[in-house]
Design a protein around this nucleic acid. Structure first.
Lengths: 208, 208, 208, 208
DNA sequence: CATGAATGAGGTTTCATTCAT
DNA sequence: AATGAATGAAACCTCATTCAT
């Protein structure tokens, strides 16, 4: 069963948009929307400029489709994430581990953040969608876990911004890695466990 | 003591570079390096393209000078920051308050982060300088405070990444504000006090 | 006698070129040669670009074939036109009525004129053919009628350019309709009868 | 008093738009709007593409400005045209001579007609303006002359479309020259005098 | 110092045409 | 016969930069 050297035309056609989106991702995160040339994307795929326009109407549409494309895996795995425990500590730890794995340690997600920060002003829709499908659900989930902990007298009365304070180190770590990871790598697992450790103590302490 | 209605021509002349840097800042943060036109900067100042080139050799140099320019105030105030207490809790709280005031609540600093994230790949020097004059000193200072606390048996044994975990929420909050503040404003003071509160409890707990 | 619901595939096939020529006509008169896309023509027929090239080698050839195609009906009817009278007045009136019916009041012929005017410089052959198969025969026929009238002492001695002067209002009316008919419709019948009336009097008068 | 070899920069600047409009006219009439390249216009002026865009925002705007520019002389001379006689025959003859001189025998005006015919569908404004500033005033003037003649019992009762019938040969002759003049030149003066002669007889006849 | 006309390289997009299926 | 993916040449337009005034 030898590997298929040449894909059929039908296979080729089905793959093209994906190939282009992959290439677009790499180019856009490397140079930003404006400084990326459509031709760069084409070259990376191994086709000519015109081919890009067979699949995407404009550079803007290509960018937006690409953002959609790289956002999908997280949305998918978030939908599939279920807490298996009733213990608020374990629930929080479990969810934070999940977020670290899916966001901090996923290059795609880290770079997606770069784009949200850098191109958000030019693509407000992206911000809205990112908020609605990412930030809002995540914050809400944290909120629920904290609420449950508070209701059961395990966590202390929460502050209004507590969910964001719990979330902030994740965003911070993402950005830290985006900026400095090349020269100052950071031990993500250590950061995660430290963050959790701090949180567990910080939240529990109230009960003392 | 007459009000200075019109600056003299000499004063005007001396201000030109500053005006240009201010204008450049606004344009570059709004559209990014690549999408900003030198003419946009000129228009904002009220001069013509050519004038920009009287003071700055290239668009790149203008950008770099602008980053330098908006970075200065933080460096200045950081140099002037002294801890007046020996108590590690107070020292940490004091320093975090300082960072919130100087970074999270300073539009210039927030937007500077946007540029570091978005243009860092194109301007590696900026990243290096930002690391050396901003991140490194800040982390070091946190480290010192934590070390002091540990040495005096007030804080528990610290993790290697603890300073970054303490710093991360600040970066995270900056980025949160950069991205969502327009539609989901966040109560910075509440975030600060919650963060400090959590930290105090989290760190102290070790002693229990 | 069942209605022919669907043409057979063979019939379909035979019709393709005609359908394409029809579509090409509509597109070319609407946007001109250069601004018309081969794909527009294809879409109008309901096929894809490639199909056009099955029947026509290039866009130019398509255009030329189309001009040929829409010119045919006039040539046909002109060949079939016979003067049934000996009276020069009646002959002239009859021929002018024929020309109005076939040219001024025929959308195809009017639009053909638009193409001759607009694309003539790019397609000199079209001009030549239009001259040889249209203008020249028509002018000649007018000339013959006038000659006959002069020979029989009914019309006055003609001017060298008289046939063109007789013809010019027809072209003028065509162009008037091409340009302004949408907002300033013109009563073709009234124009025809006025033109004839004027001519009859103008030509006859000489004899007085 | 030697000729000024090099115009000053100020002179140059004042002339540029005119030079460009002249060049645009020649290019647009030769190839039509769509097939004309901005670079062709630039080359004809002896500057580069970019220079065109210093003076005209888009190719469309350039086209429209050019139409405006070449229309002006006729509007000017039409405003200056006054009939010096009370005799309707003379008035009509005088006006038709004027129109032949200004329209039929003016290359600019002839070619303007080509553009109206060929680009009218793409530039409806041009049609409107051409109607309002050219066709309508001319037709109105003819109408007035004819009315005066009828009122004084010199011309017969006019037909509703008579002014257009009087005007049509002029448009027809223009178009004839546009299309065929290269290979079948036409004697404009002869056409004019024949047209006038025919008209005079045709109109006067009523009195008999 | 300041201007702004001019440049020209380069970017996005279009489209006639080809060709494997 | 018909398709439509792919090409690549070329068009429109932009903009950093220069330089004579």
């Amino acid at each position: 069963m030898p590997a298929n050297k040449k894909p059929t035309r039908a296979q080729q056609k089905a793959m093209r948009p994906l190939q282009i989106l992959e290439a677009a991702f790499e180019e856009f995160i490397a140079k930003g929307f404006s400084a990326t040339r459509v031709e760069d994307v084409a070259e990376r795929v191994g086709v000519t400029k015109g081919t890009i326009y067979v699949y995407f109407e404009t550079k803007e549409k290509l960018f937006e489709s690409m953002v959609e494309y790289v956002s999908e895996p997280f949305k998918e795995s978030f939908r599939g994430f279920v807490t298996k425990t009733d213990d608020p500590f374990e629930a929080l730890e479990s969810f934070l581990s999940f977020l670290f794995a899916q966001i901090v340690n996923e290059r795609r997600m880290r770079e997606l953040f770069r784009l949200v920060v850098s191109e958000g002003r030019t693509f407000p829709d992206m911000i809205d969608r990112h908020h609605d499908t990412f930030m809002e659900p995540v914050i809400t989930r944290i909120d629920q876990i904290v609420d449950a902990g508070v209701a059961r007298g395990i966590f202390r009365q929460k502050s209004a911004e507590l969910p964001k304070v719990i979330m902030a180190p994740i965003i911070g770590t993402v950005v830290f890695r985006l900026i400095f990871d090349d020269r100052r790598p950071l031990d993500s697992d250590e950061v995660l466990s430290t963050h959790i450790d701090l949180l567990m103590n910080g939240l529990k302490q109230a009960m003392a």
